[in-house]
Design a protein around this nucleic acid. Structure first.
Length: 505
DNA sequence: ACTTCAGCACGATCGAATTC
DNA sequence: GAATTCGATCGTGCTGAAGT
């Protein structure tokens, strides 16, 4: 049997609206993994993709402050025009039946004369510029110049900049030239009319990179997704620039050629395919490959793409055996802790030393999760952003059931006590869930492969004829090691009665 | 060694929702 | 209603790259 991709288009459509960019994926992580560091790493990784909607500004002042300072500069010599006395001195204004309502000065856009008058003042102020309130920043006019004389980048045109004083140097950020915008985010000195991210228009793109790092016979594989903005005719150079700025968080190794996409969605799908295939490749030969990017998006609804990419990389995953004997399969050792017996409830599995894995499923999907408390984190009302809850809201049939899967030992460690003898509250014990979460990650991979091959749901008698989708969308690579594939294979044999093998092509 | 540019990480802070 | 938790946003400092 091969990867089944015939139904991909239709099902991909169904799944797509659940994804809604990478944000929901991060929210799902909140439910699955409580570890703070991993969580923040994952959220920041994903948040990087988010547009800064309002357009922040460099430095400590808000855009409003900068705008107000500029307006003041432009209008300071005709403040009197707005004063009441002047109106009284104008008979034609007074004679109007309804006096004109004076709009707040900030809302009244500057005329080009007013704007120019402010610019004249700024130009006249030279290098020192004109201070912006008490922000410590100044408006400075910088003239067009080429590289050289301590100028690392071409300044493509004369530009109004915000200068910030720093230890031993200054920072200059050019101000967006879009009408009445004072943002500096994304403005570039090498644009002729620099624009901030908001006003660059549709000039945004997404790049997906694969990295390979060879070390001691092992190839580390990692991926990176990057949004970047570019000015007209500057796509390649601004891509290059954005890439180099990412230095601190790039995967180790040598980057391959970037693949470019126009939308976040396309780029994330490609990333998911590359990550999923790379993870499987590492499973197929753990002595030779190691996946290094912390979080891996599982390519849901992208069966054909996964299959193609695996072919591209000269290997495949094959279903090589089927056993329909339930009793025989039950003899196979269960790889994730102690398998629950049919009459056990989730709560039965939980105690001070044990957490549990469970499967949530209905006729269309399944989802693997972990818990130490038994609290339902998929409740639509209480946990609206949870993946399963969202699924329920959009596609749910109300038939979702939760099936206890297994019990896994956890360790409890006392927090180092703070010396307050009189403190009533004892600091809560920290529960080490590493093993639980590790097994959960393996469960996710197992369920994902079962979904890839459209295997039937073996977990609940009502759904034995269904071929569920896997709702789990992300796993952490740090939970995998050279024995991971053995566990996943064992799980698939034991629960699904299917034997899987990798084949090199 | 020093400067400029530009984007990121991370801590602080704010506000909404949730829990007790 | 106070306390807590969480996410979103804001502010600040740091850093690398590329230039002299």
């Amino acid at each position: 049997m091969e990867l089944n991709s015939t139904e991909n288009v239709q099902q991909g459509e169904k799944r797509r609206s659940e994804d809604e960019g990478g944000v929901s994926a991060s929210k799902k992580l909140v439910q699955n993994v409580d570890d703070k560091t991993l969580l923040s790493r994952a959220t920041t990784r994903i948040c990087k993709l988010k547009m800064k909607g309002t357009g922040a500004v460099a430095g400590s002042a808000s855009i409003d402050q900068i705008k107000a300072a500029f307006y003041h500069l432009a209008r300071s010599n005709k403040v009197e025009l707005d004063s009441d006395e002047l109106i009284y001195s104008q008979p034609d204004v007074l004679s109007q039946s309804t006096p004109p309502v004076a709009p707040p000065p900030e809302l009244l856009p500057l005329s080009s004369e007013e704007r120019d008058s402010a610019l004249v003042k700024i130009k006249a102020a030279g290098e020192a510029g004109i201070t912006i309130g008490d922000t410590g920043m100044s408006f400075v006019w910088k003239e067009k110049c080429g590289v050289g004389f301590q100028q690392p980048k071409e300044r493509a045109s004369d530009q109004l900049c915000i200068m910030q004083s720093r230890t031993n140097s200054f920072d200059y950020n050019s101000i967006c030239t879009h009408n009445d915008c004072f943002s500096t985010t994304g403005t570039r000195a090498d644009e002729v009319m620099p624009k901030c991210l908001m006003h660059k228009g549709p000039n945004e793109s997404y790049a997906v990179y694969e990295f390979k790092a060879h070390k001691g016979g092992v190839t580390g594989i990692g991926h990176m997704i990057m949004k970047f903005n570019y000015a007209k005719d500057k796509k390649q150079s601004h891509l290059q620039q954005a890439f180099s700025k990412r230095s601190s968080i790039k995967p180790k190794g040598v980057p391959g050629k970037p693949e470019l996409f126009n939308t976040c969605d396309e780029a994330e799908k490609r990333l998911a395919v590359l990550q999923t295939v790379a993870l499987l490749k590492c499973f197929s030969n753990p002595n030779k490959f190691k996946y290094t990017t912390p979080s891996v998006s599982l390519a849901n609804g992208l069966e054909a793409e996964v299959k193609n990419e695996m072919e591209e990389q000269r290997f495949k995953l094959e279903l090589t055996g089927i056993s329909n004997s339930k009793t025989e399969n039950a003899q196979i050792p269960f790889p994730f802790g102690r398998r629950a017996t049919p009459d056990e409830t989730l709560v039965d599995l939980l105690d001070d030393e044990h957490g549990a894995l469970y499967i949530v499923c209905d006729n269309k999907m399944f989802y693997g999760g972990q818990t130490i408390s038994g609290v339902d984190t998929h409740n639509v009302v209480r946990h609206g952003s949870d993946t399963v809850a969202q699924y329920e809201k959009e596609y749910g049939t109300g038939n979702v059931v939760k099936i206890p899967l297994c019990a896994i030992p956890i360790q409890k460690k006392k927090k180092k006590k703070e010396d307050k003898a009189t403190t009533a509250k004892e600091p809560a014990a920290i529960v080490e869930k590493d093993d639980l979460k590790k097994m959960e990650a393996h469960l996710h991979v197992g369920l994902y492969i079962a979904y890839l091959f459209r295997l039937r749901n073996p977990f609940h008698p009502t759904f034995t004829k269904t071929h569920p989708y896997c709702l789990n969308k992300q796993v952490f690579s740090s939970y995998f090691d050279e024995h991971s594939w053995e566990k996943v294979v064992l799980f698939l044999r034991r629960e699904f009665g299917c034997q899987f093998e990798f084949k090199q092509m």
